[in-house]
């Protein structure tokens, strides 16, 4: 039982969501509830209004011309089952911590909005060059995933605004990729994640590190760096390190360098394999 009282709203479409979240009171938006409900149970979050998006028709994956549209309430299981899910995101969804139960309830948009640094979603969406479509009573605005994650547990979402859609450019989804994740055991939260999708000219030029810093870190490369250079560069870019009971900042920074090289190596090996 959650101690603090709140009003529960379950809107059935986007307009009702806007109405529900337009209030002076503190609002918590839930979809699968896997983060927020346990936080409320521990009194870490005490909203006056809880808005449940599960019936608002915000799940599903579809392709429109040059973008893939992902509903924020799409669960990881739905991502795995949908035909239009980018292969990179499918790989990410298959390894979500917490087992079948969490993949069935947790949602990609929920994890993005919660912005917990070691979660897979923030780094994955930055790797995919996703655009976050935010909606409020004033209309829509689009924010690049790189600008969406402002700090640990903090996003660009303003009061009265919610994540309506995630857009992924289709061109990025069909190339060679690698997703490397380091964690203590299969069931534990990631320590560091590294995502790399080959560039248009077929090189590993961009690695995105999750878990090492408070927000995803983009490592831009020329494409011909040695592995030591990639590791050093990655470690030097972790300016706001994340630290928790599972791993401290130094450990995460060091691991980030290692995981970045693994991601690049995996992409390079696949590219070489194709050229042969």
């Amino acid at each position: 039982m959650i101690l603090d009282r709140f009003e529960y709203l379950r809107p059935s479409n986007v307009d009702e969501v806007v109405t529900a979240i337009t209030t002076e009171d503190e609002v918590a938006i839930i979809s699968g509830g896997t983060w927020v409900v346990q936080q409320m149970g521990q009194h870490l979050r005490r909203p006056k209004v809880v808005v449940d998006l599960s019936a608002a028709g915000l799940s599903g994956v579809s392709t429109n011309q040059d973008t893939i549209s992902i509903g924020p309430s799409t669960t990881y299981t739905q991502l795995l089952e949908a035909g239009d899910t980018p292969p990179f995101l499918r790989k990410v969804a298959s390894g979500i911590t917490g087992g079948i139960q969490i993949r069935n309830a947790g949602t990609i948009g929920g994890s993005a909005c919660f912005a917990y640094p070691p979660s897979d979603a923030p780094g994955a969406l930055v790797t995919l060059n996703a655009t976050m479509v935010l909606r409020s009573g004033d209309g829509q605005r689009k924010v690049a995933a790189t600008d969406f994650f402002l700090d640990a547990l903090t996003t660009a979402l303003r009061p009265g605004e919610f994540l309506e859609e995630i857009l992924v450019p289709i061109a990025d989804t069909e190339r060679i990729f690698s997703y490397q994740k380091f964690r203590n055991v299969t069931g534990s939260t990631p320590i560091v994640t590294a995502g790399c999708i080959a560039s248009e000219d077929g090189l590993a030029k961009r690695v995105v590190i999750g878990g090492a810093a408070t927000t995803p870190v983009v490592v831009d490369l020329a494409g011909d760096e040695s592995e030591d250079e990639i590791a050093d560069l990655t470690r030097s870019l972790i300016s706001h390190p994340w630290s928790d009971a599972l791993a401290n900042a130094n450990y995460r920074r060091h691991t980030a360098g290692t995981m970045a090289t693994r991601a690049v190596r995996a992409v390079r090996e696949q590219i070489e394999g194709e050229e042969r």
Binding site: R10, G32, T34, V37, V50, Q101, A105
Partner: peptide, 19 residues
Amino acid sequence: CTVTVDGEVVKSCLALGVS
């Protein structure tokens, strides 16, 4: 606390009953 809700296996401590 695992149960199934509409056929989906989920952890029932992470959901509100009213949902």
